[in-house]
């Protein structure tokens, strides 16, 4: 019962702040709403018994990406201009509504093979063992290389000439 109440509160928070990100005029306020959206998603991970991912969500998204976005908003002085919509607004809205309808239709009409077993908890040890096992160690190292090259690329792009 407590899980359900938590889910509905978090879902309302996520959808509300996502709508605020899209519809707020002030870009800085939209970024603050994005942080609240990320916090709600971390809570959703907790209700899904993914404790490590909830922590990683707080560290990476709230601590890293949101701060980066806020910094770029301050660097580009674009707050007075706001975030107006371009001429694609109506087609984009229709596309999003059609996509949402299709997704909800297919979700409600699919019979998912839901398992009754209890999930692994806590997940940190199991995730660490899995990431460094035979199957995932090559993707793990590749993603490390990707991160390194992305950081180098970001430095080269943002550097003063």
């Amino acid at each position: 019962m407590g899980l359900q109440i938590a889910f509905w509160i978090l879902a309302a928070m996520i959808i509300g702040s996502a709508l605020a990100v899209v519809f707020l005029k002030n870009v800085f306020r939209a970024a603050i709403a994005l942080i609240s959206c990320f916090i709600g998603i971390a809570g959703i991970y907790v209700t899904l018994s993914a404790d490590f991912l909830a922590g990683a969500q707080v560290l990476i998204y709230i601590g890293g990406i949101s701060v980066l976005i806020l910094l770029v908003i301050l660097l580009t002085h674009n707050i007075p201009q706001g975030s107006p919509a371009n001429r694609l607004r109506v087609p984009a809205f229709l596309l999003a509504v059609v996509f949402l309808g299709l997704m909800i239709f297919s979700i409600l009409n699919t019979n998912f093979p839901v398992s009754r077993r209890t999930p692994i908890e806590p997940t940190t040890v199991a995730l660490g063992n899995l990431l460094f096992s035979q199957e995932y160690v090559l993707p793990l190292l590749t993603v490390g290389m990707l991160l390194l090259s992305a950081i180098l690329g970001a430095i080269v792009l943002a550097r003063e000439k």
Partner: peptide, 16 residues
């Protein structure tokens, strides 16, 4: 799906 649709709308329709 709702979050993805909102994000899709925003990503396609915003100037900033």
């Amino acid at each position: 799906a709702c979050l993805f649709a909102i994000g899709l709308f925003g990503a396609l329709s915003k100037k900033n």
